[in-house]
Amino acid sequence: CHSECLGNCSQPDDPTKCVACRNFYLDGRCVETCPPPYYHFQDWRCVNFSFCQDLHHKCKNSRRQGCHQYVIHNNKCIPECPSGYTMNSSNLLCTPCLGPCPKVCHLLEGEKTIDSVTSAQELRGCTVINGSLIINIRGGNNLAAELEANLGLIEEISGYLKIRRSYALVSLSFFRKLRLIRGETLEIGNYSFYALDNQNLRQLWDWSKHNLTITQGKLFFHYNPKLCLSEIHKMEEVSGTKGRQERNDIALKTNGDQASCENELLKFSYIRTSFDKILLRWEPYWPPDFRDLLGFMLFYKEAPYQNVTEFDGQDACGSNSWTVVDIDPPLRSNDPKSQNHPGWLMRGLKPWTQYAIFVKTLVTFSDERRTYGAKSDIIYVQTDATNPSVPLDPISVSNSSSQIILKWKPPSDPNGNITHYLVFWERQAEDSELFELDYCLKGLKLPSRTWSPPFESEDSQKHNQSEYEDSAGECCSCPKTDSQILKELEESSFRKTFEDYLHNVVFVPRKT
């Protein structure tokens, strides 16, 4: 048989008469490798580009789960590009990614509803959504962080984005990388972005840091009482949809009607710091009717980097990364020049730590249904340095008659930039024990000054392991946590139920 035959053949030295091919099969003959313009397919066939392209389009058009959109890589027609490569849609070739590779997620039936953290986790790592997304989240724990972890990498949506009755959302900033909504599939009414009845939605994105392009379709905003109209108009300008909307697409009466839409800028007039305090004062603000001013709200939190936005980490279910302080308005003076500047002394802060701070007014709604208010920009203030805590785990070892090696770990709280350490030492008198000992005694162990690591005695271990207080009263049991108490109650309830079950099964009433 021919060298490319495997198993047997019907005619000697003829690659077209093989029972099976050793390498690849091409047009009725066995070959060692697939010549151009053919590609290896499933490690035994040679196919042309049209064959591989037909497989790709067949799966793409069917949208069946589990099928493969075949691509070409290293002269092979394979189910998908290997790690580190992405497909070129024009020629199906796998090309190296520039940075992290995109991950295209194809949605069944063309859309997916995100109504819980669990459903959001199914899209973790996706960068391109081939379909439409509907966000409908009523509640949950730590929602802002969970949504950002699972949806934060999405850069492109081919269909539309719909935010509907998501009472738990305060902001859409968890879509931190969303840059493009194509609108290839539109919501009824030709809408590519749809926001309806979101009672706590206050911000779409921080438009000073976020760009969003909507290729096709219109915007729809109705019944978002805490979303200011200025935020919607800003989205029109940034996304390129200005002029597409009709009169009733953006409701003037049901958007922002319960919001404090600040239209003035508060400026800080005085800032002073110490290692654990920050004193702030800002310019006074009074609405047209000074009785509408209820006070100020001061927001602050630790910020290692200057990239904080107002609604980071917030949701309507209680999660809030900001510390909020309510401040009463100052006494009002008739003389504008003698107006008191409101302020606040922030206490209990960490030394040498940068804080993000902003302040906003708290006002009631005027009778004319106009909203007044003022808010400052987010500023960054760093507390002063102070003395560091003591170095940890000092170790001293003498390696000769004239040297001592000293080692330690950095302090747990540096409280500033540590530039150097101060080492103090003092000579001590020799131990009298060394002169009084009889060095001729056998088995004498000389006193040693070398360091030995501390260890816990058996008594201390027994005390720590004991669940009861000892007789001397030195140790006591740790208080039980809520989960331990709940577990004990469940076990007790189970024992009672099981005992009742045994009584009912074992003891049967005697027939009379």
Rank of each mutant, 00 (worst) to 15 (best):
E262S: 13
V397H: 15
K103W: 13
R176C: 06
K277P: 00
T127M: 15
G295S: 05
E283P: 08
I114A: 02
S192G: 14
W282N: 01
Y194I: 12
I134W: 07
M346F: 07
D315P: 05
K177E: 11
Q216M: 07
T127L: 10
L180A: 13
I137N: 02
R370P: 10
P391Q: 01
L331I: 08
N307G: 03
W205A: 04
I278Q: 00
T254V: 05
T127F: 03
D115R: 05
I232M: 04
L123T: 04
D393F: 12
E231K: 14
E111R: 06
I129N: 00
T213R: 13
V363D: 11
P287L: 07
K350I: 08
R247H: 07
S132Y: 00
F299V: 10
L151S: 01
C261E: 03
G240Y: 13
M235G: 08
P330M: 13
L294G: 15
S402R: 09
W205G: 08
T213Y: 05
S173K: 12
S158N: 05
D326R: 01
H341C: 07
F311Q: 13
K375L: 15
P388W: 01
N263S: 14
I163H: 00
I137F: 04
K162I: 06
Q203T: 06
A195R: 00
G131N: 03
V397I: 09
P329Y: 06
C126R: 00
G217F: 01
H233D: 13
R244A: 04
R124Q: 04
E236W: 15
S402C: 04
V390T: 05
E246Q: 15
P284T: 03
S389Y: 09
F175E: 00
V381R: 12
M346G: 03
L169E: 11
P225L: 10
Y194D: 09
L331P: 02
E231T: 09
M297D: 12
K301R: 10
C105Q: 00
N211Q: 14
R138P: 03
L265E: 14
C228S: 15
N263K: 09
L161E: 00
L180R: 06
E237L: 09
I188W: 05
L280G: 00
F311G: 08
G243R: 04
V363S: 03
L362R: 02
N142D: 09
E146Q: 05
K209V: 11
G348Y: 02
L298F: 14
L219W: 14
D335W: 14
L293K: 04
F174A: 09
D315L: 09
P351F: 06
L172V: 09
S239C: 11
Q306H: 06
P351T: 07
C317P: 06
K301G: 03
G159P: 00
Y305L: 07
Q354M: 01
N136M: 05
R176V: 10
I232P: 12
T353K: 11
R124F: 11
K177Y: 07
S166R: 00
S402D: 09
R247N: 05
W344K: 09
P351Y: 08
E148V: 07
P336H: 04
N248Q: 03
S230Q: 00
L362Y: 14
I114R: 00
Y191M: 11
E246P: 13
S116A: 06
I405T: 07
S119A: 03
G217N: 02
D257F: 05
A145G: 13
M297F: 01
N399H: 12
F220R: 10
R347K: 14
L229A: 14
A145L: 05
K337G: 09
L180M: 11
C261S: 03
L392T: 04
E156W: 11
L186S: 12
F299R: 14
K360P: 00
R176N: 02
T215M: 06
F193A: 02
T364N: 15
G125V: 07
G256F: 08
L201Y: 00
L143V: 12
V117L: 14
N340P: 06
K218R: 13
S319F: 11
A259M: 08
T113P: 13
N399D: 15
I395H: 13
D206P: 09
G159M: 15
L266Y: 02
D367E: 12
K267W: 07
Q203Y: 14
V170W: 11
L161T: 02
S400F: 02
Y380R: 10
K337Y: 15
I379H: 05
L178V: 05
N198K: 00
L161D: 00
W352Q: 14
L161I: 14
R179Q: 10
E122D: 05
K242C: 08
S208M: 13
G131I: 00
Q403H: 07
N200K: 02
L151R: 00
L204Q: 02
L298W: 01
N200D: 03
N141S: 12
T353A: 08
S402V: 15
K242I: 12
L266R: 01
I157R: 00
S338L: 10
Y305A: 11
T241C: 15
I214D: 00
N190K: 15
V238L: 10
L265M: 15
H210M: 09
I114Q: 00
E187D: 14
N211I: 11
P304Q: 11
S260Q: 12
Q403V: 03
P410K: 15
E368R: 14
R179H: 14
S333P: 05
T353F: 03
L161M: 06
E187Q: 03
G125L: 07
S230H: 01
L280I: 05
N399Y: 09
H222P: 00
A303K: 01
N307H: 15
T361S: 14
E156I: 08
P388E: 01
N255Q: 09
T254Q: 13
K409R: 14
M235K: 00
S333Q: 11
K301I: 08
A251T: 13
Q199I: 08
W322H: 12
R369D: 02
W282Q: 10
S402G: 01
V308H: 01
S366P: 14
K267T: 09
T185Q: 10
W207R: 04
E262T: 04
I214E: 00
R179T: 08
D115H: 04
R179S: 09
P304G: 03
D326F: 15
S338F: 05
E109I: 04
L266C: 03
D257I: 03
C126L: 00
L266W: 01
T353G: 04
K301D: 07
D257R: 05
P330Q: 14
Q203I: 06
D328R: 08
L180S: 06
I135Q: 01
L279S: 03
L107V: 09
A195C: 09
Q382I: 02
G343C: 04
K409S: 08
L349Q: 01
L298N: 00
Y167H: 07
T118A: 02
K360D: 03
R182I: 13
G217T: 00
S192L: 00
T113M: 12
Y380P: 00
L280M: 10
K267I: 15
D292H: 13
E236G: 04
A195H: 05
Q245M: 15
K350M: 09
S366L: 02
S376G: 03
S132Q: 13
S158R: 05
E122R: 09
F311A: 11
I271K: 15
L349V: 03
D115K: 14
T383W: 00
T353M: 03
Q354G: 09
L108K: 04
N211A: 10
L362Q: 03
D115V: 02
E262N: 15
W286G: 13
